[in-house]
Structure formats: C-alpha cells, structure tokens
Amino acid sequence: MHVRHGLSRLGQYRQPNSGLIAIPLALISAVTVIDSSIPTTVHLGPFLVAAPAITASFAGPTLTGAIGALAVAAQALIGQLHGGLTTANHLAQIAALFVISVLVTIFCYVRNRRERKLEEVRAVAAMAQRVLVRPLPRRMGPLQIASTYIAAEAEAQIGGDLYAALPSSGATRLIIGDVRGKGLPAVDEAASLLGAFRGAAYRELSLPGIAAHLGSSAYWNKAHLADGDPNAEESFATALVLDIHDGGPFIKMVNCGHPPPLLLRDGKVRSLEADEPALPLGLTAPSASDYKVETFTFEPGDLLLLYTDGVIEARDYSGTFYPLSERLASCNTTDPHSLVRHLHHDLLRHAGGNLGDDAVMIAITKSR
C-alpha cells in the first residue's frame, strides 16, 4: 500500500514560498543596518528573535534553523560594532537568541513529524475507504453514475456510510446505507453490510430477499459484538436497495428506514416516498415477507439522487438544515458528475466546511 514516502525527508515536507522567505531575511537585514547606525544606548537586536519564529510558521526545521543561525550571526555583528562581543549585554542577547532559535527549530521538527504521521494516517484511511466503499463506475449499462463521499471525521476520511452497485439480470442493483454513528466503530458494520449485499446480489436474490439477508447480517453481527461493545445494542443501519431496469422505465426499491431518493424531471423534484418503509437493519431478525417492493417510473432524461441523512441534516451557522430539494431543483444541469460536484461544494459551503455526520450523494441518469 503506497503511503507518501516522499514526506520522510525533513526539509521537504513544507515547500516555502520564496516571497515568504524574504520576510525574515528582510527583517534581519533591516535590524542589522538600523541597529548598527543608531546610538549604542538603543538596542534593536532583540527583534531578531522574530525571524526564526516567522520562518517556523511556513517552513520546515532546516530552513528555520538556518534563519535562526543567520539571526544569531547578525546579533554577533551588531555586538562587534557596538563595543565588542565580550560585553555582558551582548553576550546575554546572543545566548538568548541562540537558545530561542534552537527551541523554535525543535518545535518545528516535532510539528512536522506529527504532520507527516497524520498525513500517512489519512493516506491509509483513504485507501481503506476505497477498498471498503469502492468507487462506483461512471457507466453501468445505460446508466451514468456519479458519487461523492464526505466523511465527518476529516482527519480519518473514513466513516459508516456505504454504497455499492452491481450488474444483475437486466438491471443495475444498488445499495446506499448509513450505519448509526461515525468513525471506526461504524466501519465494521458497514463492511459487514457491503459483504452481505455483494454476496446476495451475485446470488440473484429478490429485493426482499436481499433486504432480509442484510437485516439478518446486521442483527447477528450486532449480537456478536454485544459482549465486547456496550453500545452495540443500539447499533442499526438505514438502507435503500433498488433495481434500475435496463429495458423498462422504472425502478424497484425497498426502503429500510432510509431518506427517500429524489427524482428530478423537467426541473421539478419529486421525493420517492415508500408507502410502507421497513424497519432499519439490525433491529430484528427479519424475513423476506417483512419487506415490500415499491415501483417508480424512471425515464431517460430523469435524474435520480440517492443520499444519506448527513446531507439533509447538515446545518449552517444559524442551525438551518441543508435544503437539498431546493438546491437540486435550482441546478441548471442534469449531468450527474457536474451535479454531484456542485452539490458537494454547496453542501460544504452551507455547513461551513464541517459536517456533523458522514454524507454520501449518488446521481444517476439513464441514456435515451
């Protein structure tokens, strides 16, 4: 697994802007020239400590240490010009500047080392996410598909929302789900559900059969984890399982407590509400008879948007929920990739860049 080995070189983690480097250099030059020209009773040398401190804000420890050494040399030059290096005042200023420069350089090294480790964790988590929730293909049969996953725990980039799409007999079979909670505790349940979905889909089970298989998997997985995790009893997942048929303008869907899909047709948005939604997965050990298949029309030119509740529950600074239906209706495109990109940026802008829960959006259109 590739994880940014290039970050290991100490001085290369941060690439400083040449314009920013000019700031501490100009400060050292200005203090040296001015302090050498003014009366010896006025001391500007202590301002030199700002040079390594400023450098540490945008550069690595190597450059920070070099600027610190240059500042110490400038202080020594000022001392030489103002009566020699043997005076107690100049020796104290040089020693203080040297100690502070060393401390700032050490701090910069520790910070960069932590950032390298964090970047490696993010890279590993992102790879794990791609293995767990594989990117959807841009095309499956007559369908164009675009998706985005936004994890609430930005440092981990992994969470409990899940989705998958597989070809079936004359249809494309999809799942989108949301495990209660976020972060690593939800990952195990998401992995279990995705494995159960793929196994059931390849066996060509009916939609109620798949939903029952998912429900049983979630229920028994929760029972297995209950002894080691006191929160496992409260675990459940919402999910949509649907077939988009190739040869007919319709969708068949089973809703297990999940937010209903949105259908955009001729600039109008319709919520595909199930008449009899089933319970979320994991609450009971179900049978296929517990699930009812709902049928909706889905014609060429329509756009179907699947999403998790992290989207519609995102709040702005005033506490207003994200108005997904309104934003979808106001979009001027039915291209799924452009639409998902627009909604992704619009959602983050609405929430100020911080989501309270993982969020997934999947846009689907059918070719004419």
Score class of each variant (00 low, 15 high):
V3N: 11
R4Y: 12
G6H: 09
G6E: 14
Q12R: 15
R14K: 14
Q15A: 13
P16I: 04
L20V: 00
A22R: 12
I23E: 01
I23N: 03
P24C: 07
L25H: 13
L27E: 01
L27S: 03
V31K: 03
T32E: 08
V33I: 15
V33D: 12
V33H: 14
S36T: 08
S36I: 06
S37P: 03
T41I: 12
V42H: 15
H43W: 12
F47G: 05
V49A: 15
V49P: 05
A50M: 15
T55K: 07
A59L: 05
A66T: 06
A66K: 01
A74R: 06
Q80L: 14
H82D: 13
H82T: 07
T86S: 15
T86C: 09
N89D: 15
H90D: 13
L91E: 15
I94A: 12
A95W: 13
L97W: 01
V102S: 07
T105E: 10
I106C: 06
R111Y: 11
R111P: 05
R113L: 12
E115R: 10
V121Q: 09
A123F: 01
V133G: 00
P137C: 09
P137V: 09
R139P: 01
P142D: 11
Q144T: 14
A146Y: 03
I150A: 01
E155V: 03
A156T: 02
Q157I: 00
G160A: 03
L162C: 03
L166P: 04
L166K: 06
G170K: 08
L174R: 05
A186Y: 04
D188A: 13
S192Y: 00
L193H: 00
L194Y: 07
G195K: 08
A196T: 00
F197N: 02
K222N: 01
H224R: 15
H224F: 07
G228T: 08
F236V: 02
A237G: 11
A239Q: 02
I244K: 06
P249W: 13
F250T: 01
M253W: 01
N255Y: 09
C256M: 11
G257W: 08
H258D: 08
P261F: 10
L262N: 07
L263V: 01
D266A: 15
G267V: 07
K268S: 14
S271P: 04
S271N: 04
E273F: 06
A274K: 05
A278V: 06
A278G: 10
P280N: 09
P280E: 03
G282S: 08
L283A: 00
L283E: 06
T284V: 04
A288N: 01
Y291M: 05
F296T: 01
L306V: 04
Y307K: 06
V311P: 00
V311G: 06
D316H: 09
Y317I: 09
Y317A: 13
P323S: 04
S325P: 07
E326I: 08
E326Q: 12
R327Y: 11
C331G: 10
N332L: 14
P336S: 09
P336D: 11
V340W: 09
V340A: 12
L343W: 04
H345V: 03
H345M: 11
D346R: 03
L347N: 06
R349S: 14
L355V: 02
M361G: 02
I362E: 05
A363T: 10
R368W: 13
